[in-house]
């Protein structure tokens, strides 16, 4: 790009250039020369030390800010993970918690009927645990359509549903509400719930065939707790939550105690910690031998 840097002047240009160069433009004064030369010399002589001082300062501030930002982000992420169910695969998000709002088995230990059970995993438990039993409409698990619909609902909606569900179903034992949500059955359940979805039709069949009340016994609670214990920590926590949501506080408490014994190192989600404290204060009946 610099190959044609200079180009000889033609005759016209040379004549003008001759006059131009003769103009009294002069040169910079010697004082200015001295000042600039000193500037140039000083810049190089003083630069190394100045650089050593200045560079860390200019670079350390962004680095410090960056480091603080990363640390804050990590702390926030850790807090979120802790809040949502702890580390090591115990993450339970709001949708999951909302999805496990109720469970038919949990209703057995409670005089209140269970709200709809949107959690397919919980539904699976119900089916596995009490195949011969025939749950009443109020405590029976909902069809898969309900599972799919509720799983997609926000937590608030799920909570509202779980709060209203039991009473509504006591008043109205007909399985009609479940049939209303039948069109939603087309929605495919999430992959982890595939097993539960497979067994759900059996539950529907049981429910529709013999809508009777479920008899709750202590041995059944123990069975349920044992059944909870077979699942992984995350599913276990979901089941505990489902019991709480269904009003099965005894079962939930025992299951939680069993969980703590089985997984002493697993951090509990805040809602279960709260439940534990509340249960410890409210309970008249001492916790089961597994918990204490």
């Amino acid at each position: 790009m610099n190959a044609n840097r200079h180009d000889p002047l033609d005759a016209d240009e040379r004549e003008l250039a001759r006059v131009l160069r003769a103009l009294p433009a002069g040169e910079p004064p010697s004082a200015l020369d001295a000042r600039i030369l000193a500037m140039g010399r000083d810049a190089v002589v003083t630069t190394p030390s100045q650089k050593d001082e200045a560079q860390p300062r200019t670079r350390s501030a962004p680095r410090l800010a960056w480091g603080l930002g990363v640390a804050a982000s990590c702390a926030m992420a850790a807090g979120l993970v802790w809040r949502m169910g702890g580390f090591g695969g115990d993450r339970i998000d709001g949708a999951g918690a909302a999805a496990s709002a109720a469970e038919g088995v949990a209703a057995e230990s409670s005089p209140q009927p269970a709200p709809p059970m949107p959690d397919a995993a919980s539904e699976a438990i119900h089916v596995e645990i009490s195949p011969p039993r025939v749950p009443t409409p109020s405590v029976a698990p909902p069809p898969p359509s309900r599972v799919a619909t509720t799983a997609a609902e926000p937590p608030a909606a799920a909570q509202a549903a779980s709060a209203e569900g039991p009473r509504a179903r006591l008043r109205e034992p007909s399985p009609a509400p479940r049939r209303e949500s039948a069109p939603a059955a087309a929605a495919a359940p999430p992959a982890p719930m595939a097993d539960a979805a497979r067994v759900a039709p059996a539950a529907i069949a049981d429910e529709s065939s013999t809508p009777e009340a479920v008899v709750v016994t202590g041995s059944r609670i123990v069975d349920v707790v044992q059944e909870d214990g077979r699942a992984g920590a995350q599913v276990w926590i979901q089941r505990i939550r489902a019991r709480i949501a269904a009003g099965d506080e005894d079962g939930a408490r025992k299951s939680l105690q069993a969980f703590i014994e089985r997984h002493p190192a697993k951090p509990l989600p805040q809602d279960l910690i709260d439940f534990q404290l509340r249960a410890a204060m409210d309970t008249v009946e001492p916790p089961g031998p597994a918990g204490e």
């Binding site: 131009l20 103009l23 433009a25 002069g26 040169e27 910079p28 020369d33 600039i36 030369l37 140039g40 010399r41 190089v44 002589v45 630069t47 190394p48």
Partner: peptide, 27 residues
Amino acid sequence: AYAAGEAEAFEPLYSRHRGPLFRFLLR
């Protein structure tokens, strides 16, 4: 060389260009 820290390299560089540059600016 000057950028690499050789302070002495600045003076000849300056001497070569001071006149033309000053005239250019003054024009």
